[in-house]
Each structure stands twice: as structure tokens, then as C-alpha cells.
Design a protein around this nucleic acid. Structure first.
Length: 300
DNA sequence: CCCCTCACCTGATCGC
DNA sequence: TGCGATCAGGTGAGGG
């Protein structure tokens, strides 16, 4: 599910159920669900049980749930992480379930986290993930220069374009230094986070930019237009609940999003460009695909 | 430092 | 019907 709008849909769905809830049990069915967790620092389940969660946060495609500080003296060698971090990879899902729901009644449930919520009572969060590129981890929050805090594993990525503190000027000037294809830069989470293959293609289509146009050849005006279109497409996808092609992307209640109906380029090879009518083409790019209109997204 | 390729997985679909 | 090739929303390690 995993670009910014889909992850934000999950965050919004998770919030009322996990905020103020206490973790009562953790069952890990597949260790690959913990590939991002550094187990030399402590066992995931043991360190998480008993902790109270606060409101879920997100940067780009990373989601995390801060944990309320523990009181009392730190035991010798004790590690007290302050967030549960999640990345959904290609097919990860976080699903709200009744406490009695059985994990083996559905495929690919890699982990179950049981919670006690002060008003909702007992409930469970299932982490499902067909391809196992997603994972959870315990992590420490690190303060940023701007005064907010992000997990250590998130500190290397840029802010996302829906973050009020995203630095437009820094992003635009970074583009002038990069000789890479603009689409490659959009997918580089260190330059701008939250954009993946779908929304990169959609934003480039909207801004009429060829995906392989070198970033440093874009005019300032064109680059600003692209950034604006990125924000438009991400925000619109969010209001429509994200993009679902199949059952892989669903919200915390298992429901699909509607944005697939609004796609102009992604996955639409052979169909007329909604703007000019020329057939959309699909080309291989970076071990995946780019979709664009060959008539009004010309390489210059 | 910058840029790029590849490995990591499972499952659906398509062509022969 | 079977089977191999190809493809799918992502990330990060490591090589040049």
C-alpha cells in the first residue's frame, strides 16, 4: 500500500484505536516482520509489552507510534525505546481486529499486537504482509533542528511535501545539482519523501515533464510546477482513500481506496492521454516501469 | 560524494 | 493443464 497517501490513510485509521492504548501481548509469527528491528538492543515483544502508545506519526512512507515514557530507574543494560516504527514495504497492511479474531483465518499475518484501550477495551492490530518487504521495529526518537522528533531510522530521509516544514527552496536548489533523471530524484527519499512509482508518474504527467529529463535541466518555473503538482496529486489521493489495484492496499478496516479511478498515466499504457488523446506509453525504468504521454511529456 | 544496479520476497497473470 | 518468464505500490547495501 505504500506511498504517502496510503500510509496516511492507515495512520488516520490507527489513531483512535491505538492512542492511549496499552500493549498487552505481542505475537511474532514470522521473524522477517522484524528485519528493521535491531534485536541486539532488546527483544521486540518483551520491550513493547506494557508500554502505552500515543498518537501515530508519519514522515513520507514511514509510520511510527510514540510510546509514553516509562517512570522509574533504568535497570542495568535496559533499553527503553520510545517508538514502534513501521514501514509497509510493497504489501504491508496494519489491520484493526477484534481481540478474539484468529490470525490464521487470513493469509500472511506476520504479527499480532494486542491492546487494551481505555474506552474501546480489548482489540488487536494485525500486521499482514504478502511479500515481507515491510517490517516493524522499536526505535529511539531523535530531535530534529526544527524541534520535532523522528525515529533514528527515519532521520536520513527528507521531509515529505505535505509536511509544513518541507523546505521548498532547498528541494528546488537540490534539483539543480542533480544530473539524474527527474523521476529518479522523486523516488529518492533523501531528496523528497513519500513519493513512489504511482505518484511520481502522475505528478510528472500533470507537469508535462518526461520522467527521464535530467533534474538539472528543468527551469525553476517547471520545477516549482512539478512540486505543486506533487502536492495536488498526493492530497487528492488522500481524500479518495489512496490507490488500490487489488486487495494489497487497504485501510485499517480492510477497505480499498478510490484513487485508481483518477489515474491519468500510471498503469494506463495504450489508453488515450486524458489531455491530448495520444496513447500513454510504458517503458522500463529502474527495474520497474514509467508511464507517460509521449506527446506532451517530451525529452528536451 | 554521486550515481546506479541488484537483492530481498510471494503470488498473479500471460504466453507457449 | 503445466510451466517458465515477467511483473507488482519499496528500500538499502555495496560497487564503480
Amino acid at each position: 500500500m505504500p506511498e504517502l497517501p496510503e500510509v496516511e490513510v492507515v495512520r488516520l485509521g490507527l489513531a483512535p484505536a491505538v492512542t492511549d492504548a496499552v500493549v498487552t501481548a505481542v505475537d511474532v509469527f514470522d521473524e522477517r516482520a522484524l528485519t528493521r528491528h535491531d534485536r541486539t538492543r532488546g527483544d521486540f515483544a518483551a520491550r513493547l509489552v506494557g508500554r502505552r502508545m500515543s498518537e501515530p506519526q508519519r514522515r513520507g512512507k514511514f509510520l511510527w507510534v510514540p510510546l509514553e515514557p516509562l517512570v522509574g530507574r533504568l535497570a542495568e543494560g535496559e533499553w527503553r525505546p520510545d517508538a514502534v516504527l513501521a514501514h509497509l514495504g510493497m504489501t504491508g497492511q496494519l489491520l484493526l481486529r477484534e481481540a478474539w479474531a484468529r490470525p490464521d483465518d487470513e493469509p500472511h499475518v506476520r504479527m499480532r499486537i494486542e491492546l487494551r484501550h481505555p474506552s474501546l477495551g480489548e482489540l488487536a492490530v494485525f500486521f499482514r504482509d504478502q511479500r515481507t518487504f515491510g517490517s516493524l521495529a522499536l526505535d529511539e526518537l531523535i530531535a530534529t533542528d526544527a524541534g520535532d522528533a523522528v525515529p533514528g531510522q527515519v532521520s536520513h530521509i527528507a521531509r515529505d511535501p505535505l509536511d509544513p516544514l518541507f523546505d521548498d527552496r532547498a528541494f528546488l536548489s537540490a534539483l539543480t545539482l542533480k544530473n539524474s533523471a527527474i523521476k529518479r530524484v522523486l523516488l529518492d527519499q533523501g531528496a523528497i519523501s513519500g513519493v513512489g512509482n504511482i505518484y511520481a508518474d502522475e505528478a510528472l504527467w500533470a507537469a508535462r515533464i518526461h520522467p527521464e529529463q535530467p533534474a538539472n535541466t528543468l527551469s525553476r518555473a517547471k520545477a516549482k510546477l512539478l512540486l505543486a503538482e506533487i502536492r495536488v496529486v498526493l492530497a487528492k489521493a488522500l481524500t479518495e482513500g489512496g490507490t488500490s489495484f487489488d486487495a494489497q492496499y487497504v485501510n485499517v478496516n480492510g477497505q480499498a481506496g478510490y484513487f485508481a479511478h483518477s489515474l491519468n498515466a500510471y498503469g494506463r499504457q495504450g489508453t488515450p492521454c486524458p489531455r491530448c488523446g495520444a496513447p500513454i506509453v510504458r517503458v522500463s525504468f529502474m527495474n520497474r516501469s514509467s508511464h507517460f504521454c509521449p506527446r506532451d511529456q517530451r525529452l528536451r
